[in-house]
Design a protein around this nucleic acid. Sequence first.
DNA 1: CTTCTAATTTAGAATAATTATAAAAAAATA
DNA 2: TATTTTTTTATAATTATTCTAAATTAGAAG
Lengths: 137, 137
Amino acid sequence: MSKNCNFIEKLRETGLRPTKQRVKICEVLYKREKTFHFTINELVKKISEENNEKISLATVYNTVHAFKKKGYLKEITLNNDSTYFDTNTSHHHHFYDNSTKELIDLNDEDVEKIQIKKTLPGKKISSVEILVKVDNE
Amino acid sequence: MSKNCNFIEKLRETGLRPTKQRVKICEVLYKREKTFHFTINELVKKISEENNEKISLATVYNTVHAFKKKGYLKEITLNNDSTYFDTNTSHHHHFYDNSTKELIDLNDEDVEKIQIKKTLPGKKISSVEILVKVDNE
DNA sequence: CTTCTAATTTAGAATAATTATAAAAAAATA
DNA sequence: TATTTTTTTATAATTATTCTAAATTAGAAG
């Protein structure tokens, strides 16, 4: 979903009623320059900072999962305590900063094409994801 | 830890008291041909199948984390519900079968060398992990 | 503009995975 | 064998997430 989107229209188009909670969440997620990596907790915190009326935790969960199902968010592969989501839904990889616990995008074109030389009979590859963990030098 | 290890000696060497619970867990984990990928729940189930006396759930958690700290187990990067561990502690990658929810080893030499063309200032790469998700054909 | 229906929000309960606690048991040491 | 330290254990606590059912809201129809 793009930064200067008419969120109300966009939501309606995809069959999601544009409630004020959903529009507010859209603004927090998509009205920004860079892609946004977040956990549900971080999102809840951001919303309550920007909003005078609070949004229920259950609504945040519902909305994030609805957006994921519609393809507006991607869930990210990490073995951490909490689940991360990403507003960048194109195919890409990630750096994970062990010291700050932050995720950073690693674009497809910044990785030399990966060749998997092993095949599994009867199975086809659906995705190849790279996680590059980094530490301070 | 190798298949035909003297677990009692090996544990003692690394400063872990060889209790009967730990030795039993070693047997379940390492007395097998192939590397073993498991969740805590699966491990508890395997133990109770092979063992007449039950081992407390807390002990299984304690032991798995102690083994991980000693480098006998590796925790695996997956955004699933439960956390996976791996008895193969060498550097390697994984297939994840979406239909069976199983992990399969993908050795380092089965992947063409990965070149990351982007660098992060002040950060050094500590690991590069690939997760290849597969579905039925 | 009001009425109706279905979707959505909400607070709080339920669940599941994991960690903490503190007493009892076992292992190592003297 | 006595003593000290580590480990196990059952249970409680915690955390993230999902469920539930009642109240509210959005959109459609009149």
